[in-house]
């Protein structure tokens, strides 16, 4: 019985411990945001990396998500003559759910993993120690700009994803499945509220915080050379993705 409790309890204790450490890192990051120097250059550099450089992958995944959504809903709705609702369904799904979630998962794979790998490599090659010896706080120099970039750029990318997803849905719905163009757009205007879009963007911001914080935390606590960097990178992607999907449920439940 004791062994069973040990076996099941240990991962739970470790999880709580990790959660506590991530929370402390978050507080430390927030504290460094309001203390000079403000590292504007680093913040913009990270915004470019997280946001601008993620555009191609977000455009492709967003467009195809909208397209496949249009096909699936069309075949479903056709059974009871509801084809006119395809546009609204695509737009609502993109704005409320798929835009933020797909974007966050893509950026996790691209930028979250890179954050863990880069900071992890800096840790095992003593570059982070070098920052300390030069009186530069690594949380402020490395983590704070990445977290800000995540929080700010994810909503931006989500706007692009939402838009391109709806365009993809329009292309399939109107161009290939012969839904009337006017009805497609009219239903979107009729059913999609501004709050749907804004709540989706708030979700994206939270996902941006999660993926950047987890990527930085995993990288910052790397040990064990190249193998350790690989492990940290994998864990960053897995933990971020799972956390994004779990938090997505709770955010949706609260918001909508």
């Amino acid at each position: 019985m004791v062994r069973f409790l040990e076996f099941t309890g240990k991962p739970f204790v470790m999880m709580i411990e990790a959660f506590g450490k991530v929370s402390l890192l978050l507080f430390s990051t927030l504290a460094w945001m309001v203390r000079p120097p403000y590292r504007i250059h680093e913040i913009f550099k990270q915004m470019e990396f997280v946001g601008v450089n993620s555009l191609p992958v977000v455009l492709i995944t967003g467009a195809f998500t909208g397209m496949v959504l249009a096909i699936q809903t069309y075949y479903g709705f056709r059974m009871f003559g509801g084809e006119s609702l395809v546009g609204a369904t695509v737009a609502l799904s993109m704005a409320r759910e798929l835009g933020p979630a797909i974007t966050a998962l893509m950026v996790t794979g691209r930028a979250g993993s890179a954050m863990a790998a880069e900071i992890g490599t800096m840790r095992v090659t003593e570059q982070i120690d070098a920052l300390y010896t030069m009186s530069v706080n690594p949380v402020q120099y490395l983590i704070m700009p990445r977290v800000i970039a995540g929080i700010v750029m994810l909503p931006m990318l989500t706007i692009v994803s939402d838009f391109i997803g709806i365009v993809g849905g329009y292309f399939v719905g109107v161009g290939l499945l012969n839904i009337n163009s006017g009805i497609f757009i009219a239903r979107i205007v009729e059913f999609v509220d501004l709050s749907d879009i804004i709540n989706g963007l708030i979700k994206a911001s939270v996902f941006g915080l999660i993926l950047s914080l987890v990527g930085c935390y995993k990288g910052f606590n790397t040990s064990g050379g190249a193998a350790g960097v690989g492990r940290a990178t994998t864990q960053a992607v897995v933990v971020s993705s799972v956390s994004i999907l779990i938090s997505d449920y709770f955010l949706t439940a609260v918001m909508f």
């Binding site: 490599t121 090659t125 003593e126 570059q127 120690d129 070098a130 300390y132 010896t133 009186s135």
Partner: peptide, 17 residues
Amino acid sequence: DVRKNFGMLFQEAALFD
């Protein structure tokens, strides 16, 4: 503040790559 008096050469130099 104290560390500003220090310079340190690391084993593998620890240059920012």
